[in-house]
Measured scan of single mutants.
Amino acid sequence: WVPTKREEKYGVAFYNYDARGADELSLQIGDTVHILETYEGWYRGYTLRKKSKKGIFPASYIHLKE
């Protein structure tokens, strides 16, 4: 896992994603996520609506905010 280059990196989910394991994070369309790390097509972070739950999710489900 590699920390993100920018201190504040955010994105928005444009697909729903159902977590398949305890380390994964479920997403709903429109969720804003804070991205902490990246690795081979995956991000690690949390949604702003539930900051206490961190997990991994596919990068392809996220539109990055500039």
Rank of each mutant, 00 (worst) to 15 (best):
Q28G: 05
L25R: 01
R6V: 11
W1M: 07
S60Y: 07
S26Y: 04
G11E: 03
D18Q: 14
S60G: 08
A59S: 13
E8R: 09
Y46D: 02
Y17H: 02
W42G: 00
G45L: 05
V12L: 05
H63C: 15
H34Q: 06
W42Y: 05
D18T: 14
K9D: 04
V2E: 09
K51N: 08
T4Y: 07
I62D: 01
W42V: 00
K50P: 15
W1C: 10
A59T: 06
Y39D: 03
L64V: 09
K53S: 07
Y39N: 13
A59P: 03
R20M: 09
E37P: 00
E24P: 03
I29S: 06
L27R: 00
L27E: 00
G41F: 05
I29T: 06
K54R: 12
E8A: 12
E37Y: 07
D31R: 02
Y10W: 15
T38I: 11
G21C: 13
G41R: 04
P3A: 05
E66Y: 12
T32N: 08
R44P: 02
I62P: 02
Y46V: 06
S26C: 06
I35C: 04
I62F: 01
Y46G: 02
L27W: 02
P58V: 06
I29D: 02
R20V: 11
R6H: 12
A22I: 09
V12M: 06
R20Q: 13
Y10F: 11
K53L: 11
K5V: 09
V12G: 02
I29G: 02
V33F: 01
L48H: 11
E40Q: 14
F14C: 15
A59R: 10
K65F: 15
G30A: 01
P3E: 09
E40P: 10
Y61T: 11
T38L: 07
P3G: 06
S52H: 12
K9S: 14
Y43D: 01
E40F: 07
R49H: 13
G41I: 05
F14N: 07
I56L: 11
E8N: 12
W1F: 08
A13S: 05
E24L: 05
Y43S: 00
V2H: 09
Y15T: 13
D23Y: 07
K53D: 08
E40D: 13
K51R: 12
A13D: 02
R44T: 05
V12A: 02
F57Q: 02
K53A: 09
G21M: 08
V12I: 12
G21K: 11
I29C: 10
I56K: 09
E7Y: 13
R49D: 13
V2D: 08
R6P: 14
E37T: 05
T4I: 10
E40L: 12
R20I: 09
K65R: 12
F14Q: 13
Y46I: 05
